[in-house]
Design a binder for these strands. Structure first.
Lengths: 218, 218
DNA sequence: TACTTATTGTGAAACAATTCACATACTCTG
DNA sequence: CAGAGTATGTGAATTGTTTCACAATAAGTA
């Protein structure tokens, strides 16, 4: 009864996001030379409940040993496979402003298997310049280059005002996954997954928490 | 009673985050000279249901007029007040690496009332340098400067390896809200709200979505 | 004023996520 | 190799969130 993409999905987004947490925790545990880990300890490290850890994992199979726990290295690989990070993803960065160029230099992406292969901008002064060994390409060549370099994901870090115009091109080039940093609601077809990252919203949430002495439950 | 706020009903994190969306939508509607907006239209713009919009708002009061909708400008101000963004927040940026310096230049923060007042680093080569009109201070002076400049929130953009050490100082300086970009689980006391922002996790989620032909529900 | 239309505000219903609790099954020790 | 101990895997119970559906009520109209 494993989940596969046959029809219905019963896996929640929260479960997937926790898988990322488990993956990071397991990488650390591996370095600490743990061979096995109990749900209790894994939960403690991620501030979750043991039942939640077990339930999350159980959606994808039965990875543990009763009385002992989960094998650290194996579970790490299994989760990598589930998340689809047991490979290298080719990324393009569109927009080389503050955020874009920071992310190009962000070593964590490379470390996690997300390899930025192309950078685009529409500013003539930026086109041709070098960022961490990559030459900024003209956004006009984007459709062709995205295909030629077998890019699977795009990070969009352009001004809000041009974001829709540019994302249309990205979609037209066949990209199915986009991480957008422009603080605007963009339209994409149903079969394209667009995730919005809005840093002001994060600060607004902090603002609410301290203004209202609100105690989030996690 | 986990939540304080004088015995009010429990508000979910999702509701708060949607409040940010409504706020942004209302700002736009105001520019488009709308005077009132129905939950139906507001929902459409944010890809939510009208019932959800009304329910979210109803947690905080009764802001609309039956038969007409919500008054755009007034609702915007009410939400700003609820979120605590009807004011300027003084922020300090700790760490002037890629992410840190990008965020210092990120105009959206300023625009939303989050004003970066101080920047810190521990690298002698960076201390004293100028970033967007701000001089990078020595992290050694952080406890004193945070208090002197009445800083209320800290954005942490330092390497994971030193993050715990630095956040301890931030907490000791009396800061109650921290946005952390280091991909590591930090420990803070109960009365400090720490929010983690992990960009690799966002890409991992994209990876899962396209690897499994997963259809998120929103 | 009375009538029509529109849209809110909100209990109740439906749905979703988390936690509980325990049978099951494995390890470890002597 | 048996008994003690431990921790998984998972239905059931609980808790949380979203959607439904409709009474209430304001605006607009004549």
């Amino acid at each position: 009864m494993a989940n596969k993409d046959t029809g219905k999905k019963k896996i929640s987004e929260s479960t997937i996001r926790r898988l990322s947490l488990y993956y990071r925790a397991l990488s650390l545990l591996e370095k600490e030379n743990y061979e096995t880990i109990a749900s209790k300890e894994l939960a403690k490290r991620e501030k979750l409940t043991p039942a939640q850890v077990r339930k999350d994992l159980s959606f994808f199979g039965s990875f543990g040993t009763r009385g002992l726990g989960y094998p650290v290295t194996e579970l790490k690989h299994r989760i990598a496979k589930i998340l689809g990070i047991d490979r290298i993803w080719n990324i393009a960065m569109v927009g080389v402003g503050n955020i874009g160029s920071a992310l190009v230099s962000y070593k964590e992406f490379q470390r996690q298997g997300f390899s930025i292969k192309l950078i685009f901008d529409n500013d003539q002064r930026k086109i041709g310049s070098n960022h961490k060994g990559l030459i900024v390409s003209d956004i006009k060549d984007m459709p062709r280059l995205l295909r030629e370099h077998n890019i699977q994901m795009v990070v969009l870090a352009v001004p809000a005002i041009v974001a829709q115009y540019i994302i249309d091109d990205v979609v037209a080039a066949g990209i199915k996954a986009i991480l957008n940093f422009a603080p605007i609601n963009l339209q994409v077809p149903d079969d394209v997954y667009l995730r919005n990252e809005n840093m002001s919203m994060e600060l607004e949430y902090l603002s609410f928490v301290i203004s209202n002495h609100y105690k989030p439950k996690n």
